[in-house]
Simulated scan of single mutants.
Amino acid sequence: MKLFECGIRYEKTMENGMQKKVTELYIVDALSFTEAESRIIGEMSCFISGEFDVVSEKITNYSELISTDSAEADKWYKVKINLITLDEKTMSEKKQPLYLLVQAHDIDDARSRLNEHMKGTMADWVCEAVQETKIMDVFLYAPDAPHKKAQTYEDKAAQEAAEAVASSPSCQRAAKRFIDSIPDGQKVTISATGCKDVVIDKTHDHEKVQDDA
């Protein structure tokens, strides 16, 4: 996986109520430019109601990402560190640059999170630069624990919505009314794009609801 920086241009409503064309930067992880574009379109469709364009894409040089759940950490910082090793032949020090993307509240917070992240590192290292970026947010694939597969933001949102619907008494009653409205002796298949077919089978003495494999 690589981290891609994508530029999104759209018409944004400013604090004064005026509409203004803006370009914002976001990070996604993907295997190719095509996948990165598809992923950022899917992610931003959840947040932008109007039209928007992907105006730029580039592969970043970030080798690590340090994120946090802290609500105050609303900025992303580009951090350059140098890993210091010793050349056994010349006995001189060599510096290997490493770039990290750190989510933090300010520069001091970024440095603090970097130091915590680098604890236990075997090689010596020094922080050369910490710079605030214009990155608005980072979207990474989230592991889906039961199946060990990638789950995108929209997958997660759909799952949460489905769970909310399933736990709603009113929705449960509506589903029961729908099932009850199907005449005995009939078998109905409900299909939806991106979902498994749901079969309501009333051809026997009892109702049966199942997922098609």
Rank of each mutant, 00 (worst) to 15 (best):
H206L: 06
N61S: 13
K94N: 01
D108S: 12
Q19D: 00
T193V: 07
S49G: 09
G50M: 11
A164W: 06
C127E: 04
A145W: 15
D108C: 08
G7V: 09
S167F: 07
L114N: 01
M118C: 03
Q19W: 08
M118D: 02
W76Q: 01
M136Y: 13
D106Q: 03
L86D: 02
D212R: 15
S170A: 14
A164T: 05
F4E: 05
V138T: 02
K94H: 01
E57I: 13
Q103T: 14
E43R: 10
K196L: 12
L86H: 01
D124W: 14
D144M: 14
E207H: 01
L100M: 13
I40W: 11
I41P: 11
Q96P: 00
I27K: 00
I84F: 11
R177S: 13
N61K: 15
K94E: 00
F4K: 05
S56A: 12
K176Q: 14
Y153V: 03
K149P: 01
K196D: 07
D74V: 09
T121S: 04
M91T: 11
E43C: 14
P97A: 02
N16R: 07
M44F: 04
E5V: 11
G50A: 11
T23F: 04
K187F: 01
Q172L: 15
T13V: 15
Y99N: 15
D211N: 03
D212C: 13
D211A: 07
E88K: 13
G185F: 05
T13G: 02
K75H: 12
V79W: 05
S170V: 11
Q172N: 06
K149H: 09
P143Y: 09
T90L: 12
F52D: 07
Q103Y: 15
T60C: 12
H204P: 00
G42I: 09
V54H: 07
E93Q: 13
E64M: 12
E11N: 12
V28I: 07
S67Q: 11
E116N: 01
A145Y: 15
H206Y: 07
S167Y: 03
L114M: 05
D137E: 12
H204Q: 06
D106I: 06
Y153D: 01
S112L: 09
K208F: 04
K94W: 00
A213E: 04
T121P: 00
V209S: 01
E5G: 05
K2W: 13
L31M: 12
H105V: 10
E128L: 03
Y141T: 02
D155Q: 08
L86E: 00
A150K: 08
I135F: 10
H105G: 02
E163K: 07
M136F: 14
E11V: 15
